[in-house]
Simulated assay, not measured.
Amino acid sequence: MSTDDTPPKVWTWDKENGGQFASINRPTAGARFDRDLPRGDHRFQLYSLATPNGQKVTILFEELLEAGHDAEYDAWLIRIGDGDQFGSGFVAVNPNSKIPALMDHGTDPTRRVFESGAILLYLAETFGAFLPKDPAARTEALNWLFWQMGSAPFLGGGFGHFYAYAPTRIEYAIDRYTMETKRQLDVLDQHLATNRFMAGDEYSIADMAIWPWYGQLVAGKLYGDAATFLDAARYGHVRRWQDEIAARPAVQRGVMVNKISGQPSEQLHERHSASDFETMTQDKRAAQTGA
C-alpha cells in the first residue's frame, strides 16, 4: 500500500500483513508439504480443530451417538496455527485448506466432505436425524443453516478479526463489523422470541451450526470481552436458546473434541471412543505421564 493508503493499481504480495495468522496466510492454494493423514478404525474420519466451525460437526456426531445411531468416529487434531491444513493429505480432502474435513470410508468409493455446513447436511441425511421430515420445517432448518454459512464470515472474519486479531485497531472496520454482528444478533433474537429452536420446536443441524458462533458469542466465550462490547445481555431470547443447548450432554462433549485451549480437563485433543472423555482429556494425560 502507498503511504497515503491509496491502493496500488495491481496488488502484489511481498510481505506478511501482520496479525495472529500472518505466518500462514498466503494468496495461493495447494499443498505446501507432504504429509499423510492418520486413519483410525471407524467409518468416519474427522480432521478438525475446536473452532466454532469444527465444533458444529463434533456436536452433531455426539448428538447422533447420544440418539443411538452407529456414528462412531475418529477425530484427529489439525493445528491450523502450525499450518497442518496445508499438508498434502489434508489438501486432498479439502482443497480449500480449512477445517473441518471428513472422510467417509463406508462408501465405495470413499467420499470426502468439506465445508462444515455440507458435513452437517451429509451426516443428517446419512442417518436420517436432526433434519425435520416435515417439508416446511426441513426448509426452515435449511434456511437457517445457510444463513449461518453466509453470515458467520462477517462475525468471525470481520468482527472477530478486527476486534481481536488485527495487528492494529481500525475504528472504521470495528464499527462496520460490530454493526453487522449486532444486526445479526437481532435477527436471531427476533426469530427466537417465537421459536424454541431455529426450525421451530425441533432441534436440528441449524441449531448446531449457529450455536457455536452466536450462542458462544453471547455467552462470553469468543473474542475476549466481546460479549460486553456487543451488549450481548440485551439479546435475551438468544441467551435463553444458548443456555438450553449448552445444557445438552452431547453438546458439552462435542465442544471438547479437538480442543487445545482453556482448562486441561475440557481439552480432548483426539477422540477415538466414548471412553476418551473420561480417560484421555489433557489433565488425565498429564497425570498419566507425570508432566
Rank of each mutant, 00 (worst) to 15 (best):
T6Q: 13
P7Y: 04
V10K: 07
V10C: 01
T12M: 03
T12P: 00
D14L: 05
D14V: 06
N17Q: 12
I24G: 06
I24D: 07
N25I: 11
N25L: 13
R26A: 11
A29E: 10
G30A: 10
A31R: 04
F33M: 07
R35P: 06
R39C: 10
N53Y: 02
Q55N: 05
L65A: 02
E66R: 14
G68L: 03
H69R: 12
D70P: 13
D74W: 00
A75E: 02
W76D: 07
W76L: 02
W76I: 06
I78V: 15
D84M: 07
Q85K: 04
G87K: 01
G89C: 11
K98W: 00
I99T: 03
P100S: 06
P100Q: 02
L102W: 04
T107A: 12
T110G: 11
T110M: 14
E115V: 04
G117L: 05
L120R: 09
L120I: 09
L120S: 09
Y122H: 11
L123R: 02
E125G: 11
T126F: 00
P132V: 05
K133H: 08
A136C: 02
L142G: 09
L145Y: 09
Q148G: 14
Q148L: 14
M149V: 15
G150F: 15
F154M: 15
L155T: 10
G156M: 12
G158A: 11
Y163E: 02
Y165M: 14
Y165S: 12
T168H: 14
I170C: 12
E171Y: 08
D175A: 13
D175C: 00
R176N: 08
Y177V: 06
E180S: 04
Q190K: 15
H191Q: 13
H191M: 11
N195M: 10
N195A: 12
R196Y: 03
R196C: 02
M198L: 15
G200T: 08
G200E: 09
D201V: 08
Y203R: 09
A206I: 08
D207P: 08
W211Y: 15
P212H: 09
P212S: 12
W213D: 06
G215W: 10
Y223K: 00
D225F: 03
A226V: 04
T228N: 14
D231Y: 04
A232D: 09
V238A: 12
R239G: 12
I245H: 05
R248P: 00
P249C: 10
A250M: 03
A250W: 01
V255R: 08
M256S: 01
P264S: 03
Q267H: 05
Q267K: 03
L268A: 02
L268C: 03
H269V: 15
E270N: 08
E270I: 01
E270L: 00
S273M: 05
E278I: 02
M280F: 05
Q282F: 02
Q282I: 02
Q288H: 08
T289H: 13
T289D: 12
T289V: 08
A291L: 13
A291K: 14
